[in-house]
């Protein structure tokens, strides 16, 4: 667990970057610090690996004050990923990834062998190993950046806007990889972004900062979307937070109608719907709503794990379902 204890950072000249921050980042979870520029989120993040020193207050990792630890050794135990990856241009991809293990005294050969495995983990084939960073696309560089941070298998990762320098399509792919990796690895991750959508998508916990370095709200994405603490948070998470909060609602207990209600529903030989969007019980209400809206007939088709249609939902069913739920949980 990473703990901020009443941390203040005042820069020479008097501007307050972080204003009495107290925050806990749970072990094995992703905590995303998010907020507008100048809100102190990056300064706070950089205090974890002592790239910035607090003016007052303490930052603890599992109860130990980072200020009392050897700077370099502390950092070698924390994976560090930054915007634009910050890869060493004069080293090959493989040697970039092998950096921290070699700092920790592992042999070059061992470090390189491990690095090859890591490249594969982040979705890069071995042919990239001998290339230099300048020969990679932005998305590939960012993957190498993540592999490099993971190389020494640190329990903690500090990520400063790791996905903001790539285009939306590539970012989407990196998000998927990130979630898949984190599911396997269960690292304690502190990440900074200015993008609330990214924060909601990737974070187990979201910490929203406001200008002047003050914490506005901490909670799960669902809590933050459902109950913004104040107008600033409500404004920051956006007007469509209602729709977005449906991402966290399961479609499992959504009532369905029999297939026979729709006369012209076309199924293939295996019973899979043709020409209609489909969802499973594991999907979110947001997907069902989306399908119902874009379907000309206002219908979303539910399928089972094999893709066989087993029911339909009309969009007014969705509205009723949501209204019923609202009555149940005031």
């Amino acid at each position: 667990m990473i703990t901020f204890e009443d941390v203040v950072k005042v820069y020479p000249g008097g501007s307050t970057a972080v204003d009495h921050l107290s925050l806990e980042l749970p072990t094995g979870k992703t905590t995303v610090l998010v907020g507008p520029s100048g809100c102190g989120k990056t300064t706070s993040l950089r205090m974890i690996n002592r790239m910035v020193r607090p003016t007052s207050g303490r930052v603890l990792i599992d109860g130990r004050d980072v200020a009392e630890q050897d700077e370099a050794l502390l950092r070698r135990g924390i994976g560090y990923v930054i915007q634009h990856a910050g890869l060493f241009p004069h080293r090959t991809v493989l040697d970039n990834v092998a950096t921290v293990p070699m700092l920790l005294g592992r042999t070059r050969k061992q470090a390189r062998t491990d690095a090859l495995g890591l490249l594969e983990r982040v979705g890069l084939s071995a042919e990239f190993a001998k290339r230099y960073p300048a020969q990679l696309s932005g998305g590939q560089q960012q993957r190498v950046g993540v592999a490099r941070a993971l190389a020494a298998d640190p329990p903690i990762m500090v990520m400063d806007e790791p996905f903001s320098a790539v285009d939306p399509v590539v970012r989407e792919g990196l998000h998927r990889e990130f979630l898949r990796l984190q599911k396997d690895l269960g690292k304690t991750i502190a990440m900074v972004t200015h993008d609330i959508d990214e924060a909601i998508k990737l974070g187990d916990v979201v910490a929203i900062f406001r200008q002047g370095g003050r914490l506005a709200q901490v909670g799960t994405p669902r809590e933050v979307l459902a109950n913004p603490a104040d107008d600033f948070v409500a404004e920051f998470v956006g007007r469509d937070r209602g729709l977005r909060s449906l991402s966290f609602e399961s479609a499992a207990d959504l009532p369905v109608r029999p297939l026979s209600e729709v006369g012209d529903l076309e199924l293939d030989d295996a019973g899979r719907p043709v020409g209609y969007g489909s969802f499973t019980r594991a999907d979110s209400l947001r997907l069902v709503t989306d399908l119902a809206i874009i379907s000309p007939a206002g219908i979303a088709v539910r399928v089972d794990a094999e893709g066989v249609a087993d029911g339909i939902v009309r969009h007014h069913d969705l509205v009723d379902h949501l209204a019923a739920r609202r009555r149940e949980q005031p």
Partner: peptide
């Protein structure tokens, strides 16, 4: 590129 130098420090050099 100061970002690269920052990364080097952040990795524990």
């Amino acid at each position: 590129d100061q970002r690269v130098v920052d990364a080097a420090r952040g990795m524990g050099m």
